[in-house]
Design a protein around this nucleic acid. Structure first.
Length: 573
RNA sequence: CGGGACGUAGCGCAGCCUGGCUAGCGCGUCUGAAUGGGGUUCAGAAGGUCGUGGGUUCAAGUCCCACCGUCCCGACCA
C-alpha cells in the first residue's frame, strides 16, 4: 500500500480521551477512531491486524476440529426466554442491547451466542451418532457495558471468536474442552503473548469449570493470583488461599465493650486495642435480592463478593447504604458487629473468622467495639463459608508457598457448560440404549479486537507500537527518501514492486515528507521491519534494513535483505 | 445507576469567575522560498453554527434552565 493513498493519518498529539498506552497509540498511529462511547472504527491498519489475528485463531480452531459458521447478531427474545437469561441480561445486569422491532417484537443484539447455537444444533442432533460437534464463528458482539473503557479493551461493540462444543458424555466434553484449551495455548504462543492460563469463575455463562487466558500487563483490569512454586493460578475473584493461623489464648476472657472514638479501619483499631489485626473482625452489611446480610471476615481480609453471592445463593449483592446500616445497627458506619442485629439480618462468616479465642468485632454502637468475643458463648455460631478475597502473601491452597499477584488482560475464556443450556432448551439425543439425554456443551471465547489492544499494551516503547510479524498489518515499512530525484524514485518503486512480487506485505511511504517525519511515523506505526531507499542506498543497489525492536540499521544488497525479511517473517522462499 | 468534569477550527487548548468592537494560541492544512537522514526555518493564507434548544439582558462563548454528547470516579470501609 502506498502511504500517500492510505487512510489513517498519524496524530502528533495524544487524543485527550486515551487512558492507556494501547488506546493512545492505536489512535495516534491511525489504527482506529472513536465513533461514540465504546464504539470504534477499525481503520485499514487495524483491520489488517484483526484479520491476521482472526486467521491464526481460525487455523487453530480448525486444526482442533472446529468448523466455522456465522450466526446472526440480531436475536429474538424467545430464545433467551428459553434459556432463562433474558431477565438477567436485560433488567438485572442491563448488559444487553434490546429493543422492539417495527412489529413490536422484542429483539436483542447478541452479547454471546449460547442460545442461538443451541437452537441451531438441537435441530442437527438427534442421535449419539451425531456427536460430537464443534462450531465457531468470528463476529461482532454487542455489550452495553456499564463503563466502556480503555478503547478496545472494554468496548460496547467488539470482535470475538466464540466456539461451542457438543458431546454425548462427560468424557467427550472433557476431551473437547482439553482440545480447545490446547488450541488456545497455541494461539497465544503463535501471536507471541506473554500470558498465563488461570482458573476462573464460570459466572453468568454458567457451568462447572472454566479457565481464562490472561495477557500480562500492568494496566490489566484483572488481578491474577498465582503460586510461584506449584504453578497454581487463578483469577482473584475465583482464587482460593489459606491464611496463617496464630496461637490462641488458652482461656476465653469476659466479653467487654470498649470505647474507641473514631477508630475507622482495622489497623488503627488493632493498635488502639493492642491486639493483632488478625483478632479483629470486619462485619459488612449487604443488601441482596434475598434480604439483608451481615458478612464477617477476619480483619486482615476483604470480602470476595462473587464467592459471597454464591454462598448466599443470591442474584444481586451490594453494600448497604449508610442510612440502612444506621437503621440496622443503630450506629454510624464502621461499628457494625454480629451481636444484637435485628433478627431479619442473616449472618454469615468466613471460615477464618472461626477458631479464634477472644476476637474483636464492632459493637453496633458508635465508637464502641467488643473485645474477647467468642462464638457459642456470646453469640450462636453463624453459617461459615469461604468468601475471603485471596491476596498476594496468603498461603497457596495447593502447597505451602506464598501467593503472588499480577495484573492481566483477559483475552480468552473457556467454559464447561454441561447441560446448562441443552437442558432448558431441549437439546437432546438418544444414546445407544435409546435413552433421551441432554447434550453436554462447552463454550470458548477469544476477544479478537481485545487481543490487538493487549498486544500493543504489552509491546510498545516511547516511540510507538512494536508489532510482531505474525500480526503486524504489514511486514515491511518501505521508506523512500529524496524521491524528487528520479533515479532514487525509480529505485524505490522497483523495491516496492519486488517486495510485492515476493509476497512481502509492504507499506510504502512515498509521501513527499522529510526524513524525520517519515521515521517518526514508522516508529509510531511499528511495522516489524523498516527498509529505507534513499540517496545513500540508491547508488549501490542496496537498501537500509532495520528491525523495529533494534536500534541499528544495516546496509544490505536487496537480495540479502529479502532473505532476512522472509526468514524473520516466516515467509516461504 | 449515583457523584464529578468537560463540550470553543482537523487535533490539543486559552478566553467564561468579573457579559461589551472583527473569538485567540500551539500543532496540522494551503501557497511561496530556503533546507534536505530523526517532526527544519522564514513569509503569507484559509479554516469556527463557541454541543443543541430556550431564557435573562441594550448586548451572551461568558449568566440561568433543559436536553444531547464525551470523559473520569464509585463501595474495598465496618
Amino acid at each position: 500500500m502506498r502511504q500517500s493513498r492510505h487512510v489513517g493519518k498519524t496524530l502528533r498529539e495524544t487524543p485527550k480521551d486515551a487512558q492507556t498506552a494501547a488506546h493512545a497509540l492505536l489512535l495516534r498511529a491511525g489504527f482506529m477512531r472513536q465513533i461514540s462511547a465504546g464504539v470504534y472504527v477499525y481503520l485499514p491498519l487495524l483491520h489488517r491486524t484483526l484479520a491476521k489475528i482472526a486467521q491464526i485463531v481460525r487455523e487453530e480452531m480448525e486444526a482442533a476440529g472446529s468448523e466455522e459458521l456465522l450466526m446472526p447478531a440480531l436475536q429474538p427474545r424467545e430464545l433467551w426466554l428459553e434459556s432463562g437469561r433474558w431477565e438477567r441480561y436485560t433488567a438485572i445486569d442491563g448488559i444487553m442491547f434490546a429493543f422492539k422491532d417495527r412489529r413490536g417484537s422484542q429483539v436483542c443484539l447478541g452479547p454471546t451466542h449460547e442460545e442461538v447455537v443451541t437452537d441451531v444444533l438441537r435441530r442437527e442432533i438427534s442421535s449419539y451418532k451425531d456427536l460430537p460437534k464443534n462450531v465457531f464463528q468470528i463476529q461482532t458482539k454487542f455489550r452495553d457495558e456499564i463503563r466502556p473503557r480503555f478503547g478496545l479493551m472494554r468496548a460496547r461493540e467488539f470482535i470475538m471468536k466464540d466456539a461451542y462444543s457438543f458431546d454425548a458424555d462427560e468424557a467427550g466434553m472433557e476431551s473437547s474442552y482439553q482440545a480447545m484449551r490446547e488450541a488456545y495455548h497455541r494461539i497465544c504462543r503463535r501471536i507471541g503473548f506473554n500470558y498465563r492460563e488461570v482458573e476462573a469463575d464460570p459466572g453468568a455463562i454458567g457451568g462447572s469449570a472454566s479457565h481464562e487466558f490472561m495477557v500480562l500487563a500492568k494496566t490489566g483490569e484483572e488481578t491474577i493470583i498465582h503460586c510461584p512454586n506449584c504453578g497454581y493460578a487463578a483469577n482473584q475473584e475465583f482464587a482460593s488461599s489459606r491464611l496463617e493461623e496464630y496461637p490462641q489464648d488458652p482461656e476465653p476472657l469476659p466479653m467487654q465493650e470498649v470505647f474507641g472514638e473514631g477508630l475507622i479501619g482495622v489497623e488503627p483499631l488493632a493498635e488502639f486495642l493492642k491486639i493483632p489485626v488478625w483478632k479483629t473482625t470486619k462485619t459488612l452489611i449487604y443488601e441482596t435480592d434475598q434480604g439483608v446480610v451481615a458478612a464477617m471476615v477476619r480483619g486482615d481480609c476483604d470480602v470476595n463478593e462473587l464467592k459471597l453471592a454464591k454462598l448466599l445463593g443470591c442474584k444481586t449483592l451490594k453494600l448497604a447504604s449508610p442510612e440502612l446500616i444506621k437503621e440496622l445497627t443503630g450506629a454510624e458506619v464502621g461499628y457494625a458487629g454480629p451481636i444484637g442485629l435485628p433478627p431479619e439480618v442473616r449472618i454469615v462468616a468466613d471460615h477464618y473468622v472461626n477458631n479464634r479465642v477472644n476476637f474483636e468485632c464492632g459493637a453496633n454502637k458508635t465508637n464502641y467495639h467488643n473485645i474477647n468475643v467468642n462464638f457459642g458463648r456470646d453469640l450462636p455460631p453463624p453459617q461459615f463459608g469461604d468468601f475471603k478475597l485471596a491476596k498476594a502473601g496468603h498461603i497457596c491452597p495447593r502447597c505451602e508457598s506464598r501467593l503472588a499477584a499480577d495484573r492481566g488482560i483477559e483475552v480468552g475464556h473457556i467454559f464447561k457448560l454441561g447441560t446448562k443450556y441443552s437442558e432448558p432448551m431441549n437439546c437432546v439425543f438418544l444414546d445407544a440404549e435409546g435413552r433421551r439425554k441432554p447434550v453436554l456443551m462447552g463454550c470458548y471465547g477469544i476477544g479478537v479486537s481485545r487481543m490487538a489492544a493487549a498486544w500493543v499494551e504489552q509491546s510498545h516503547d516511547e516511540k510507538g507500537i512494536i508489532w510482531s510479524p505474525q500480526i503486524a498489518p504489514y511486514h515491511v515499512h518501505l521508506i523512500g527518501l529524496n524521491l524528487e530525484d528520479p533515479t532514487i524514485r525509480e529505485a524505490a518503486e522497483k523495491t516496492y514492486e519486488r517486495l510485492q512480487a515476493e509476497g512481502v506485505e509492504t507499506l510504502f511511504d512515498d509521501r513527499p515528507l522529510r526524513a524525520g517525519e517519515k521515521f517518526s511515523d514508522a516508529d509510531l506505526i511499528g511495522l516489524p521491519i523498516r527498509l529505507t531507499v534513499s540517496r545513500r542506498t540508491a547508488a549501490g543497489q542496496a537498501v537500509e534494513y532495520k528491525l523495529r525492536h533494534e536500534k541499528e540499521a544495516i546496509l544490505l544488497p536487496f537480495d540479502e535483505a529479502l532473505v532476512k525479511i522472509k526468514s524473520f517473517c516466516g515467509l516461504n522462499s
